[in-house]
Amino acid sequence: MYERVKVTPDHPDLIAQPSDFVGSDVDEKPPEPIMSWVGDSAGHEFVKDPDEEEKYLIFVHGWRMTYAGSQKYAETMFKRLWHGGYKGRYSFVRWPTYSEDTHAVTDALFTYNNSDYRAWKSGRSLAEYVASLPPSYTVNVTAHSMGNIVVGAAIREGMRVVNYGLLNAAVPAMCYEDNSALYINVRETPDGDDDPVTSELGFGDKLRFTHGANLVNFFLRNDEALEAWETNNSIFKPQRYGATRLTGYYYDRSQAQGMRLGINFWSSRDRFLRAFHEAAALATASRTRTVGAEGRTGGAVNESVDMGTLYGFGSTHSAQWKWRCQYTDDFYEGLIEKLKL
């Protein structure tokens, strides 16, 4: 019933950092990394259940999860779902986030935007994996935190699923519905720019088209980790570098069209951004909270489930895995119901 897959390269340092790319032309995009996916049995080969139902649930983990930690989260979800009556196949997808496996604990805390970039780049590999599944099987997906960037990127690459459960999703709500009623950030961002080249690199409605998938937003209004996301959005978007913050990404509406969103370097001329993944991870700020903290998100989102009110998760970002099963059974029953598992 349980399959394991990983996006390749499986180490984040093997994916070139776009901020290191100067290029020979000011409009040049960083080269696309060569990425794919492979099976990853982790010593547990897949065994088909003779009584299985022809459906999949794919789970994608979040930021800064170690290899062992992400496996434990996946195994916990699998056990909870199986005990809840799910009889289809379950698949866990590992993607190359920065974590304590790649950095010291303190250094790993400063890899958010760089991991975000790798999450966007992992979407094509997830889409390719889903396309390889038996066509007679119904495919559903769920993701936690930054894992929803991977899923969103996969949907932009054409991935088709029937049901999608967003868990504490660390994705701007405006990606699903660019609604000014959700705005909390009044500063100027590329989304409000009158230059079409610049505004195209904003977040607005980038994930609104989901090929008919049923999206259910399991949100937590006071999620402590998503509040930290808002701090990062305010301070480190655009991402500047060094103690003096004199180099790095910028947004400057006073510049000429096509030159307003870019990156500057110490020893060379600026490079102007033309790639959405680079902009989304490193340069563009969101005007809204995350969809995982904003229960009013509409657009592509069909339904919202308040995990604070229904399940008592309070502010705990990963309560689904950290809390004992006696406190999480209702959540897993809700996941099974809402995703029609």
Rank of each mutant, 00 (worst) to 15 (best):
P30T: 01
K55S: 14
P31W: 04
L81A: 12
T76E: 09
Y67W: 11
Y86V: 02
E54K: 15
M35L: 15
E53N: 13
H61V: 00
H83N: 09
S36K: 05
S36E: 04
L109Y: 07
E45Y: 06
E45L: 11
Y98S: 13
A42C: 12
W82N: 14
D107N: 10
M65T: 03
F78V: 05
R94D: 07
G84Q: 14
G84V: 07
P30K: 04
F110T: 10
L57R: 15
S41D: 13
M65D: 13
W37H: 14
E100I: 11
T111W: 02
T102S: 15
M77I: 04
F110E: 08
H61N: 12
D51V: 03
A108S: 15
T76Y: 07
F92G: 06
P30A: 07
M65K: 10
R94L: 03
F59A: 10
A108I: 01
F78S: 06
V60C: 04
D49W: 11
P50G: 07
S36M: 02
K55C: 12
D49H: 09
F59G: 02
T76W: 00
K48C: 09
D49R: 14
E32W: 01
I34R: 14
Y67V: 12
L81I: 02
A108V: 01
L57G: 01
T97Y: 07
Y56T: 01
P50I: 01
I34P: 00
H61F: 00
G85N: 12
P50M: 04
R64L: 10
D101T: 05
H83S: 11
E45R: 11
G84H: 10
Y98L: 02
S91Y: 02
H103F: 08
G85L: 06
S99K: 09
R80L: 06
P96I: 05
L109F: 09
G84P: 09
E45D: 13
E32M: 09
I34T: 14
P50D: 04
W82G: 05
M65Q: 14
L81C: 10
K87M: 11
D51L: 14
K55V: 13
K48P: 00
F46M: 05
P50E: 08
